[in-house]
Simulated scan of single mutants.
Amino acid sequence: MGKKVTVVGAGFYGSTTAQRLAEYDIFETVVLTDILEGRPAGLALDLNQSRAVEGFETKVVGATTGTDGSGYEAIEGSDVVVVTAGFPRKPGMSRMDLLEVNAKIVRQVAENIAKYAPNAVVIVVSNPVDEMTALAQIATQFPKNRVFGQAGVLDTARFTNFIAETLAVPVKSVEALTLGSHGDTMVPVPSKCKVNGKPLSDLMPADKIEELVVKTRNGGAEVNNLLKTGSAFYAPSAAAARMAKAVAEDSGAVMPVCAWVDGEYGISGVYLGVLAEIGATGLKKIVETDLTDTEVAGLKEAAEAVRAKQADVANL
């Protein structure tokens, strides 16, 4: 039996993620769900009609779901579920402004995942992602290794792009890394950044690196303010799809994700952006990397900021 992946939420983020997953041609089925009647079915029809051109066989299925749990039977037996449901940010909004409104949506989605896809690995991308990941784990009651969030892959991609553009080098020559939370306490890790194997600090002055760190931290808001009608989805969907692919292929790929940290870096009991090995069971293990004292301090600061908010979500 082939693999099945579900994307919950058929907005720009969800539909683009479904497209990327279908075009990988590694799944038998991609299910796209939404509460807007007809939208997921229409997108599925459209995506299926692109198969002959793009040369993939994956079947896309659209399902309308209700807040009463109707329609969720379409996700039955999914190996991976990507949760994009919720409201995107509007210009001037922080990710935190979405906390209460999206908590209700994510809780309801998570409960239906637990009901219909009890063995799935869940990848959360709804904002604020660190808090929504914690909430999804509480609501599904899945083991913590099977619920993680997407942030680091996206933030690292943004950081990589800014470095490549600033130095006018190919993107693939840049190695970068961001940890911590998705937002104000993001911890870009300049000590792990290299260009063609050379430390970034040899190629760029510290103040310029710091400028790119700030630009990365505000990467989503910058896109948001330009679009005016929604938030980023091309880079975010690329990141989410790549994580789902690592699960489906049991690849053991190491990538920065929002994972349950239990003792690593001296931090415990919180969902936080760290490097982890990803496979069929979800999070196989957290990969501790050598960080500078400043970077570890940043990570601990991020952990405390997120911990306070994650404690609140249990009651939302």
Rank of each mutant, 00 (worst) to 15 (best):
D262H: 04
V213Q: 10
D79P: 08
D312G: 07
I113R: 07
E304A: 14
L21T: 10
I123G: 07
F27R: 00
A85N: 02
N48F: 06
W260E: 08
T229Q: 12
K194I: 00
K208F: 01
S231F: 10
G149N: 14
S191R: 08
Q150K: 03
L36N: 08
V306I: 14
M255A: 13
E277T: 07
N225G: 09
A117D: 09
A232S: 13
L316G: 02
A134L: 02
G180A: 03
L200A: 06
T33V: 14
V109L: 03
Y24V: 01
I267M: 08
P190G: 13
E295R: 07
E210I: 00
A308D: 13
G263I: 08
F233A: 04
A239L: 05
V61W: 02
K59D: 10
K194G: 00
T17G: 01
S181T: 09
C258P: 02
D312Q: 15
G252T: 10
K215L: 13
A238T: 11
V171I: 13
E23Y: 03
E23A: 14
Q108N: 15
V106S: 07
N112G: 07
E76I: 02
G219L: 02
Q310S: 00
G2L: 09
E295F: 05
G273K: 08
D25E: 08
T65Y: 01
V81Q: 01
G279V: 10
L98A: 12
D293C: 00
T160N: 15
K208R: 14
I113Q: 07
M204R: 03
I163T: 11
V31C: 06
P118Q: 10
R242F: 03
F233E: 10
K309C: 03
S70V: 05
G230K: 03
R107K: 12
